[in-house]
Design a binder for these strands. Sequence first.
DNA 1: ATGGCAGAGATTCTCTGA
Length: 258
Amino acid sequence: MILATWNINGIRARLDYILDWLAARKPDVVGLQELKAEEKNFPFEAFRQAGYSAVIHGQKAWNGVAVLSRGACEVLQAGLPGTSPAGARMLAVDTGGINFLSLYCPNGKSIEHPDFRSKLSWFDQLAVFLESGDRIDKDRTVIVGDFNICPEPIDSWNEELLAGTIFHTGEERQRLERIIKIGFEDLYRQLNPDTRMFSWWDYRGGAFYKNQGLRIDLLLASDLIASRVTEVYTDRDFRKKRDGRTPSDHAPVIAVLE
DNA sequence: ATGGCAGAGATTCTCTGA
């Protein structure tokens, strides 16, 4: 079974690129983020023809999350309770016996900006939701998405330069740690304890070819599911321009389960 | 090489992203 997460930076601008990726990697369940579209503009039919059902929680212009699955999806929760002003950033479904969450966590802009405090609150609400056990069976849950936090110094291209700035603060890292302590594993780090590999590179300044990136796109899984994982990798080829098609600034991250 | 921002929305410019 192949699970994946991908911030695709605009579903309408990226559709052909995503279809190429689905054909190449054949994932079973995919969490998508940053749809930048309402449900009425989501290309359900193109995904159906590619063999995927889709459920989405969208909004106009910004944010938006979806789950693609080869099997049927039952929506467990659309939107994180208590956070509606922050936008469409969470969708939980049951598919293939797994509770699968696609998250687009708030960015926060900078530590001085009001959005930074909102970001921390959003993570607090997420922890409350997960700890409550309402709607979600924690023992068979996978949480994927763009967390907009560098978990550890190894996950940044330049911790020395960026320590204490957005994505690199103790307050953010404590929030992520609280989520993980509920009972999840960071699948990439579990299988690759010492590897520096990123999932996002800025479009600007040649950041991709200079490998100035961050690992902010994560797959978390309950211990039971984590024990079945055999391989986790960033699909770096799909951060490159392909056949003249523009990539997202994030690469897909893929986990293989036996 | 992977090449030097990009997408959406309201109007040729602003806002946002990480």
